[in-house]
Design a protein around this nucleic acid. Sequence first.
DNA 1: GCGATCCAATACCGTTTGGGTATGGAGAGC
DNA 2: GCTCTCCATACCCAAACGGTATTGGATCGC
Lengths: 91, 91
Amino acid sequence: MSLDQIEYFVAIAEEGNIGRAALRLHISQPPLSRQLRRLEDELGAPLFERHPRGVTLLPAGTRFLQHARSVLREVDRARRAVAERPPDPHT
Amino acid sequence: MSLDQIEYFVAIAEEGNIGRAALRLHISQPPLSRQLRRLEDELGAPLFERHPRGVTLLPAGTRFLQHARSVLREVDRARRAVAERPPDPHT
DNA sequence: GCGATCCAATACCGTTTGGGTATGGAGAGC
DNA sequence: GCTCTCCATACCCAAACGGTATTGGATCGC
């Protein structure tokens, strides 16, 4: 599992459509489909149901989504924690 | 930034020594040094001070460490959330 | 002071992974 | 049944990753 895969998953979940998610992520659709499949393979369960009009979250996908967002939030906080200046007792 | 880099960083922080962290991670020392450097480059700040006997966390590294551990914890929860069976009202 | 030792950093290589283009295939709507 | 819309597959090229070999630098023991 990679952070990119997690970010891709969230985008697909929010768009409900792999092609639109690809546009939003500025990558093309085939690699995005492949990353999603690899994520599902690694997790051992499908996360989306494929429809002719897009994709919808399966229960496992819905459960995963919440934690996926938490991961991305925490990564963001980690970046900012490095950027922020440590408190200086003299100021 | 990748999940591997985060995991590598935590191992180095805990070992205080890149070589020992490499053993623990079952990779060799040079790629681990390189991943650490790339992480520091991306974050725009060094995370460790290099000593002749190992490495020690800088303040920015200490701040990063807490969030890094949160990220790994949350990834673990995400995996388990997919594995767990959804509640069934009939049982 | 000098050699030995211990670490991290660099150089180079082979393999793997990731993204791009082109194309196929299945289902919905008219 | 034709078309339109998606997702999946095939193939290719470039980037990233890990491994081995080696260098550089600083300390420790003599």
